[in-house]
Simulated assay, not measured.
Amino acid sequence: MSEKEKLIEVKNLKKYFNVGKGKILKAVDDVSFDIYKGETLGLVGESGCGKSTAGRTIIQLYNATSGQVIYDGEDTQVKKSAVDKKSMKKKMQMIYQDPYSSLNPRMTVLEIIAEGIGNHEVQLKSKEKEARVYDLLESVGLNKKHANRYPHEFSGGQCQRIGIARALAVAPEFIIADEPIAALDVSIQAQIVNLLQELQQKKGLTYLFIAHDLSMVKHISDRIAVMYLGGVVELAGSEDLYDNPLHPYTQALLSAIPIPDPKIERTRERIILKGDVPNPMDPPSGCRFRTRCPKAMQICTEIVPEWQEVSSNHFVACHLYKQ
């Protein structure tokens, strides 16, 4: 993977929210990883771990508290002119979790998809924009007959296809898919994931795929990063992470994946985590996972574990692997 060209470099990214009375919510706290051109990086973790906030901060829907997001060698956090900001927004797009709430109910499908085209390519005539929208609808498995309908006339899966077409409308290089299948029926989820993979191959797209469905993340991702309470605790290739999880939190997550055939003997012991996720406004000292970790040691209460490469392209933050 090191031979590939980096598209995104996330360095020590932090996103804190002031929730009043002097309290600070550390949603994303010192997160670092790279995303290579043409790959899919999966980002997984429990609800509330900060993965969606990380995605929205990378794409600048939220302003970062500190840290850097470098896109193709350019620091996106540096103040830019309106023209440069517009150019950057065209390169990065987002697919949202809820296909219904992400689409304006008062706009037709044609208007929804053409809106981005009109903002970034003002020279295009109406007929040209319409033709572009029809092509986009075809590319996501719909047709031009759907263009004059409203979002409420479609199923969840169809609405998500419209959301994908909208994201593709300005020809981006990088797409953040924020749990794009979580609100869909199981029968539709595989169709959407297969569509995303087809579009990636055809258009050379790069994805950050945020999800909590671990089996689906393995299917679509080249590498996977695991988040817990605002920080990344492990990062490795998809197969490597599933075959050899190092961090106790990753091991617990993977042990919870159901086996589709009950006749197959479970080879991985089920790990039940005790206690609740700590309050992100008052995280534990040292390792944030120590209050639930079955392998916690004294050092875990005192020192934050270092981010280290334990084996080739397999990174972990855990005192069990202190070098």
Rank of each mutant, 00 (worst) to 15 (best):
Gly116Ala: 06
Glu111Pro: 01
Val109Glu: 10
Leu137Ser: 07
Ile113Asn: 11
Ile176Lys: 00
Glu138Lys: 15
Leu103Asp: 07
Phe154Cys: 05
Arg149Trp: 09
Leu103Val: 00
Arg132Gly: 07
Ala211Val: 04
Glu121Val: 00
Ile210Thr: 00
Asn119Pro: 00
Asp185Tyr: 02
Gln197Asp: 12
Ala236Lys: 11
Asn194Ala: 14
Ile181Trp: 05
Ala131Lys: 12
Leu168His: 08
Arg161Leu: 05
His120Gln: 08
Leu137Arg: 14
Gly204Met: 09
Arg132Ala: 15
Arg106Ile: 00
Asn143Ile: 13
Lys202Cys: 08
Met216Tyr: 00
Cys159Phe: 00
Gly156Leu: 00
Leu142Ser: 07
Ile210Ser: 04
Leu168Thr: 04
Glu138Pro: 03
Leu142Glu: 06
Pro151His: 02
Glu121Gly: 04
Ala183Asp: 12
Ile176Asn: 04
Ile181Ser: 05
Glu179Ser: 06
Ser139Gln: 15
Thr108Val: 07
Val140Tyr: 06
Gln189Ile: 10
Asn194Met: 03
Gln200Pro: 02
Val133Asn: 09
Gly230Asn: 09
Ala211Cys: 02
Lys202Arg: 12
Gln123Trp: 09
Gly237Cys: 01
Leu241Gly: 07
Pro99Tyr: 04
Gly230Trp: 06
His120Asp: 06
Leu184Tyr: 03
Leu241Arg: 03
Ile117Glu: 07
Leu168Gln: 03
Leu103Arg: 01
Gly231Trp: 02
Ser155Tyr: 06
Ile220Trp: 01
Ile113Leu: 01
Gln201Val: 10
Leu235Cys: 12
Glu173Gly: 04
Ala183Pro: 03
Met107Glu: 11
Arg223Gly: 10
Glu234Gln: 08
Gly237His: 10
Arg149Ser: 15
Leu110Asn: 15
Val140Asn: 08
Ile175Asp: 05
Ser139Leu: 14
Asn244Arg: 13
Lys127Ser: 15
Tyr100Cys: 04
Arg166Gly: 06
Ala171Arg: 15
Glu111Gly: 00
Val109Ser: 11
Leu195Cys: 09
Glu234Arg: 14
Glu115Gly: 10
Ile220Met: 02
Ile113Gly: 11
Glu198Phe: 04
Glu130Ile: 13
Leu195Trp: 08
Ala131Thr: 11
Glu115Val: 00
Glu153Ile: 14
Ile188Leu: 06
Tyr134Gln: 02
Ile220His: 01
Gln158Val: 11
His212Ser: 05
Leu199Phe: 07
His120Arg: 10
Asn104Tyr: 02
Glu173Cys: 11
Asn148Ile: 09
Glu179Val: 11
Ile112Gln: 07
Leu142Val: 02
Leu241Ser: 02
Lys203Thr: 03
Arg223His: 13
Glu239Lys: 14
Asp213Ser: 11
Gly157Leu: 02
Arg149Leu: 14
Tyr207Leu: 04
Tyr207Arg: 07
Arg166Thr: 13
Asp240Cys: 11
Gly231Thr: 15
Phe174Ser: 00
Ile164Ser: 09
Val217Pro: 01
Ser101Gly: 14
Gln189Thr: 12
Gln200Met: 12
Phe209Cys: 10
Asn194Pro: 02
Asp135Ala: 15
